[in-house]
Nucleic acid binder design. Structure first.
Lengths: 282, 282
DNA sequence: GTTCCGCATGAATCGATAG
DNA sequence: ACTATCGATTCATGCGGAA
């Protein structure tokens, strides 16, 4: 068994047992939102906050093994409130991962535009989550141009420029230069984003609530992989990251332990792969 | 000497030597932005990242002593990049403060709308900073209603004040999922905020550059103190937090070591206190 | 009196160069 | 080898002069 046997599939099982079957340095990006810590033990799969780091470390070692040297590992996570305080397991996890050899390259933020309402006497609604970016090497693959955002109202700017100072330049290239000129302007009207992603929480287009909106994995997939690369989600949940990878012409491998999520992920992936080749323009 | 001798003054000196003169449990809120870690030693006061925690802890002990039981300590800080990685001194500081008895109640975020430019092969512009909220007790003073936002008015005013050009720039990033979508705020009367503060850095228009915009300390002062309460900034810098406290009818104590900043803080405070009682509506 | 455009500048970071 | 310094890169913002 090698990684190629798992391409474009969701595996039903424990990541700790599935990941060893993958080949070394065969995955270009890992993007995942692991089960959050939960002090209630009644729910299957809930990990106690105090045990979170020791639970995650063996899995992280496998992730490090399967990741390519220029690959990235994006971990979407947020600490729970325990006893009125923020628990420190995420901080401890970062420190522990560094000790295991991961580089903590950056901490991106997901700023949730519409988050669940709620009011407590000692805190407000939690409107952000961490997207920790780990790499194996200081040099890694990063396609910054793939996530550029338009700076302004493109049409307005274009028309305005066309009417005044750029008209001379435009005329000089009349006949053959229009497209070229516009392309230049487009380039200038695009800006690189920051390390804060301001996205709405996608409460699930279907009957289920995804852990994160599809735009979140999409953004990191565009940023850290090329078409054809392999994207791994070791806690696939409803398969959002895998669907995102497929839609972006990347290959995916998902792993999910829980029956209910596994079946849901299969449904979502089947639906995504059944769609004809009319992909969204990105 | 007691705390009352320091009310509404900026002290010129080292917090480690000034704070012991304050009375126990005499300060209702500490809001500060300490000198950031800096590996370059040329600037007086730059603390090496590896020494940051041990430098800060003795000061934090004094802060804990002077804070009231229901008081809050808000620490605005952000880790530097060292050798291509995020340094971990802030994480270690949180863990160390907890060991000293502080409760890490919440992590608010300052999402900087305009942040310093830059383009690098391995990261984007850094657009956020931490505002760590520590308390001495699970029960603390919190006036949630004081920071409710009149959403409709705010959006209207904001949109009205923006020129077309600015409006285009402001809205430009909304469509792609980055930046603030103003349309979300229209039509709602009042709402509690989240734990993310979306503020612009006050840049350049004045003759000095404040570490944080006045709105940042103002927000926490309104939230965690009543009128007449004492606000302490042990690293006063240009005195922004002290000015904010004075404008909100709170009393303030500032401490600043560096000559240049101390004089600047004096100027700003004098100016603020000279103003007649026509306070800005907040 | 408005609106618009140009421009300086900021709690930045990297890579190269110099000592 | 290691540290310190400098230049290049880059965009939101507000101010001031121009139209």
């Amino acid at each position: 068994m090698t990684t190629s046997d798992f391409i474009d599939t969701i595996q039903h099982g424990d990541s700790l047992k599935v990941l060893p079957k993958l080949s070394e340095a065969s995955v270009n990006l890992i993007v995942t939102s692991p089960p959050y810590a939960d002090s209630r033990k009644k729910t299957y799969g809930g990990i106690h906050p105090d045990k979170y780091v020791e639970w995650f470390l063996p899995i992280s070692d496998e992730l490090q093994r399967v990741l390519t040297g220029d690959g990235s590992f994006v971990l979407n996570i947020k600490e729970k409130v325990v006893g009125g305080e923020r628990h420190t397991y995420v901080l401890e996890l970062i420190l522990a991962l560094k000790k295991r050899g991961w580089l903590w390259t950056e901490e991106y933020l997901w700023h949730k535009r519409n988050c669940a309402p709620g009011k407590w006497p000692n805190r407000f609604r939690d409107a952000w989550e961490r997207c920790l970016h780990f790499t194996k090497d200081k040099k890694f693959k990063m396609n910054q141009d793939a996530v550029m955002v338009p700076m302004g109202d493109w049409a307005k700017t274009r028309l305005k420029r066309l009417s005044d100072n750029d008209s001379r330049r435009f005329n000089s290239q009349a006949g053959s230069g229009f497209g070229k000129n516009i392309a230049n302007w487009v380039g200038r009207e695009m800006a690189y984003p920051t390390n804060v992603l301001h996205l709405a929480t996608e409460c699930g287009n279907k009957n289920h609530s995804a852990a994160f909106p599809k735009e979140l994995p999409s953004w990191f997939i565009k940023l850290f992989t090329d078409a054809g690369d392999v994207v791994l989600d070791p806690f696939a949940g409803s398969g959002t990251a895998c669907v995102a990878a497929h839609e972006l012409d990347r290959r995916f491998i998902g792993v999910e332990l829980k029956d209910e999520y596994y079946r849901l992920a299969l449904e979502n992936i089947d639906e995504a792969m059944a769609e004809p080749a009319q992909r969204k323009l990105i």
